[in-house]
Amino acid sequence: MPIPLPDGELGWLQQLPLPWPNAEVLARLIHETAWREETVLVYGKRHLQPRLSAWYGDAAYRYSGLTLAPAPFTPLLETIRAAVQEATGRDYNSVLLNYYRNERDSMGMHADDEPELGREPAIASLSFGAERVFVLRHKRSKETLRLPLTDGGLLLMSGQTQQNWLHGINKTRKPRGPRINLTFRKIR
C-alpha cells in the first residue's frame, strides 16, 4: 500500500508473510544474531550507538566513520530476505539489523545516502517486537511524518526518499519491550 510522501516514495505492508509467528522470529533474531555495540562518528566526536547492531551480506558497509564487515546470511535471514524480495519485487544483498532493547534505545535522524547504495536506493525496513514511531523529516521544508512501525510490518523507502528526507527512531518515556529492525539494501 503506497503512503503519500512529497519528493519520495513509501510503501507499507502490515504483515510480511513468513513461515513462523512474529514472536518466534523476534526471539530467534535476538538469540541467533552476532550483536555488536558500535561507536560512530557524529559531528567529529565518537559516540556509542544507543542500540545493538549487526551486518550481514555480500559487502562491507560504511557510515558515520564506521566500517562494517559482513557476516554471511544465516538460514533464518535468507528466509526473511526471500520474503522481503517477494513482497517488494526488488533484490537485496545486505541487511543491517538494529536491536532496540527498550525505550532508551534510538536512531538519530539520518538519510541512507551513502554512495555504495546508488542514487535512488530501495531500503526495505522490517520490524519485529514492540511498536516504535518512525519519524521522517523533509530536508528543506521540515515537513514531518510519523509512522507507527508495528510487529511484522514492512516499510519500503525508494525513489528520491533518501535524497529529500531524514528518518529516525526517538527515545520514549513510555516503557517499551524489545524491537528488532532489519533494513535490507543493495550494496553496489
Rank of each mutant, 00 (worst) to 15 (best):
R119Y: 02
Q160C: 10
G108M: 03
R140C: 00
R101K: 15
P175L: 04
P148K: 05
L156M: 14
V135A: 05
D113M: 02
R185N: 00
L156I: 11
N170G: 08
K139Y: 04
N102I: 08
L182R: 09
D105L: 02
T172R: 13
R104P: 09
I180T: 04
G108I: 03
P115S: 08
P175A: 11
S141P: 02
L166N: 10
L145G: 06
P121S: 06
L156F: 03
L147I: 15
K171Q: 10
D105N: 12
V133C: 08
K174A: 14
E143N: 06
S127F: 00
R101P: 07
E114G: 12
S141W: 07
L136E: 10
G108F: 00
P175H: 05
I169S: 01
M157P: 02
L147Y: 01
E103F: 13
M157L: 07
L182N: 06
R146A: 15
E116R: 07
L149A: 07
Q162G: 00
G168W: 01
R119E: 09
N102C: 12
G129F: 07
R146E: 14
S158W: 08
S106Q: 12
F184K: 04
E103D: 14
H167Y: 01
L145Y: 03
L145E: 07
L117W: 03
L182Q: 05
V133Y: 00
E114D: 10
I123H: 11
L166I: 01
E103W: 13
S141H: 05
M107Y: 03
G159H: 10
R173V: 12
G129C: 06
L147K: 06
